[in-house]
Design a protein around this nucleic acid. Structure first.
Length: 733
DNA sequence: CATGGCCTATTTTTT
DNA sequence: ATAGGCCATG
């Protein structure tokens, strides 16, 4: 046990310098439940990290007695970095990470109690949907009615509310609801889904939390161990927790009661995945002796921006009383960009962006373009490219979601877990082995009927399958067996390379000489490099393939470390949470887009959209620009649009003299003639072996790879990797 | 069992 | 606009 004797605090400790009164209060509060309501830009991360540093310096706890939970890897990395900065390397022993990654670590040690191996497979939504599709098919149901998306979100919804398939089956009210929703057999699907996952030794995202909860709930002595271990527990973005997470937290802190939650009800934007603002209210009731500290001073934004943000949130009924204010300058007026079309919107925004950049002599990386939906990025990419502005898109399709990457990971996953059915489906006929869907269905049917494992059936293929197919399956099994054996003596990287080669996977990609094929090939090389790095990383005490796969399952695109390159950032508002930029462009301020047409159903939904608006606005430090278009392509069709209702809710005062009917600053931009490596330049006429002749319209460099967009006279625009593409420069006509 | 062409649903956000 | 699903054909 720790020495809990009060020690004199060090008033001039470096981490206390520069804190305001409330921040200092939060940092130095060391005993009992604490709730910090932190307005946007109020120095929340600073307070959290300082408080942890304080506990360590005051010897209230050792690093491994502290549990700190965030929602994104990025936030966790940032906190870790800052604490290590104050405390030193010893702080690395803190249990600090996202809910999901911390509990994966816990489950690796404890999931055997639920019949799971340490290196269980993590299914992403795509895997989950594929499994659901199969179940619907197995049950001979109509997939127009039993849509995978609907099923998965409903399953997720119940799991987040601590309602498992078994509990679900025992409550007739749910079945009544299913009948009303015309999906009477949902319960059956839910149960099968649960069973299939268990048999495949797989967990979906929600299971990572739910199974942890189950373990804590059912094992008193296990729970007690962790209750004693973690003398201090921290939760960031508390307004985003769901019932499972909150319930788990309560269990974990039951012994010491030293729980510190930090949140902002105004920034709750994840209700759709089960987040419940009510947890803030529950907290105050569950811990009556708690202390509340409100951080209301905003250090991030100008007065005008804070003013607009406050105006926005005032329109919501559901909110905690708080006054966010700032001492910062008044700042520049909020600007409106009004465009006739979505294409023009992008052009005007980019022109304005360039004008701002020149006027204030700032960098591209000081700018962000925020939108409601990922698909809005397209026009802006186009416009940025035209103006030769470097940009970086965060979100959308991440590296690990690319088909070829997922396919190859499926191979690795199957090596680790021979019953991973979703991975099996991906790789059994990749490259082509003459094993089609009929055979695959048969294998699953037999496994189901005989209640045997997938791998067991595969090893016994000759017993069920005819000649050629049986031989093909036998070869596949032999390959997997051999690679699995090698995994026992060789490191993960070497085995991964062997799999890539000996399965024929890499060869097939290599033989595809199209640009897309080359890119895919490059992605696999990149993945292999990633594995090598993981293996070489000395800090990984467990450099196994199984662990690698579990880790990458939890990586999201927003986590990618900000590259050094000076570039404009594009992302959704959701992804931008927790970040700040000097200049923010919030685009697509239109009815049905923002607020989304999907969110007009209830007041609560519209209020969530409004909080999203609030989040977007409060990202801005110096200047905020809003934009909308009067027409927009949707589903490939031109549609008429109306300015967002949100625009009527804010008064942009004090205003500059109005330029009626004028679009803001237009800048005629002449793209500089780029010249990346001295070989190619924009406008060059080139010849390519496959695509014929064309002209370079754009050169760029992303992640150290030089690419060119070339307009080929017969094929249209193609993006080529200059390292690979065999291009011949033609003399200019 | 593999391939290619046509049709369709999709678009809200993400750990 | 586009990717994935379905069907017909080889």
């Amino acid at each position: 046990m720790l020495d809990t004797q009060e020690q004199p605090s060090i008033p001039d400790a470096s981490y206390l310098i520069g804190l305001n009164e409330m921040q200092r209060q939060a940092v130095t509060h060391t005993e009992g439940p604490l709730m910090i309501i932190a307005g946007a830009g109020s120095g929340k991360t600073k307070v959290l990290t300082s408080r942890i540093a304080h506990l360590l310096k005051e010897q209230k706890a050792t690093p491994h007695q502290i549990l700190a939970l965030t929602f994104t890897n990025k936030a966790a990395a940032e906190m870790r970095h800052r604490i290590v900065g104050i405390i030193g390397d010893s702080a690395k022993a803190i249990w600090l990470g996202t809910f999901h990654s911390v509990f994966v670590r816990f489950l690796r040690m404890e999931a055997h109690r639920l019949g799971y191996p340490a290196h269980f497979t993590i299914y992403d939504s795509e895997d989950s949907k594929s499994l659901l599709k199969q179940i619907v098919k197995d049950l001979n149901l109509d997939d127009k009615i039993y849509k995978p998306n609907l099923l998965l979100s409903r399953i997720s919804h119940f799991k987040n509310k601590l309602i498992s398939a078994h509990i679900y089956a025992g409550h007739s009210t749910y079945q009544t609801e299913d009948a009303r929703m015309r999906i009477p057999r949902f319960g059956e699907i839910f149960l099968r889904y649960t069973n299939y996952c268990h048999k495949a030794a797989a967990m979906d995202f929600d299971d990572l939390l739910l199974h942890t909860h189950t373990l804590l709930h059912n094992n008193a002595e296990l729970t007690e161990t962790y209750q004693r271990k973690f003398s201090y527990v921290f939760v960031d973005e508390f307004q985003d927790t769901n019932l499972v997470q909150y319930s788990m937290l309560k269990k974990l802190v039951a012994h010491h009661q030293n729980i510190c939650v930090v949140g902002d009800d105004a920034q709750s934007i994840y209700a759709f995945r089960g987040a419940d603002i009510q947890n803030i209210l529950h907290f105050t009731k569950d811990y009556p002796q708690h202390t509340v500290v409100k951080l209301e001073q905003n250090y991030r934004s100008t007065k005008r921006i804070v003013d607009v943000a406050n105006q926005i949130i005032r329109h919501n009924e559901a909110q905690l009383p708080k006054k966010v204010w700032t001492d910062n300058n008044l700042g520049e007026p909020i600007e409106m960009v009004k465009a006739t079309s979505d294409v023009e919107e992008a052009r005007l925004v980019v022109a304005s962006l360039l004008a701002q950049k020149r006027k204030h002599a700032v960098l591209y990386q000081d700018f962000v373009i925020l939108y409601r939906t990922n698909n809005q990025s397209r026009n802006f990419e186009e416009a940025l490219r035209r103006s030769n502005i470097p940009y970086r898109i965060i979100g959308g399709l991440s590296f690990y979601q690319r088909k070829e990457v997922k396919d190859f990971i499926a191979y690795l996953s199957f090596l680790v877990n021979h019953n991973d059915a979703e991975s099996f489906k991906r790789i059994i006929n990749l490259p082509k082995r003459g094993i089609g869907s009929v055979t695959v269905d048969k294998i699953f049917a037999i496994a189901y009927e005989q209640e045997r494992s997938l791998w067991d059936i595969l090893c016994d293929a000759t017993g069920f399958l005819g000649g050629a197919v049986a031989i093909a399956v036998g070869r596949f099994v032999a390959l997997i067996q051999e690679m699995t054996d090698r995994l026992a003596s060789e490191n993960a990287y070497l085995v991964a390379v062997a799999v890539a080669k000996e399965s024929g996977f890499l060869k097939e990609l290599y033989e595809d000489k199209t640009i897309e094929g080359l890119t895919r090939y490059e992605h696999i090389q990149e993945l292999l490099n990633g594995i090598k790095q993981f293996v070489d990383d000395a800090e990984n005490n467990d450099a196994s393939l199984g662990r690698f796969i579990q880790e990458i399952a939890l990586i999201t695109d927003g986590d990618q470390e900000t590259q050094q390159q000076d570039a404009v950032t594009l992302m959704t508002i959701h992804t931008s949470k927790g970040m700040e930029f000097k200049y923010v462009y919030l685009v697509g301020m239109e009815e049905d887009l923002f607020p989304s047409s999907m969110m007009l159903g209830s007041k609560a939904d519209v209020e969530e959209e409004r909080r999203l608006f609030y989040v977007a606005v409060t990202r801005a430090q110096l200047k905020l620009t809003l934009s909308y278009a009067l027409s927009r392509y949707r589903f490939g069709k031109l549609t008429h649009t109306q300015p967002s209702r949100f625009l009527n809710e804010v008064v942009l005062v004090p205003q500059e003299p109005k330029k009626v009917g004028m679009a803001p600053t237009r800048v005629v931009n002449v793209p500089p003639r780029g010249n990346i490596n001295g070989t190619f330049k924009i406008g060059d006429h080139v010849k390519h072996a496959h695509f014929g002749t064309g002209q370079i319209i754009q050169l760029m460099e992303t992640e150290g790879v030089s690419k060119a967009i070339i307009f080929f006279h017969n094929r249209g625009n193609k993006t080529l990797l200059l390292n690979y593409a065999k291009l011949e420069i033609l003399p200019t006509q």
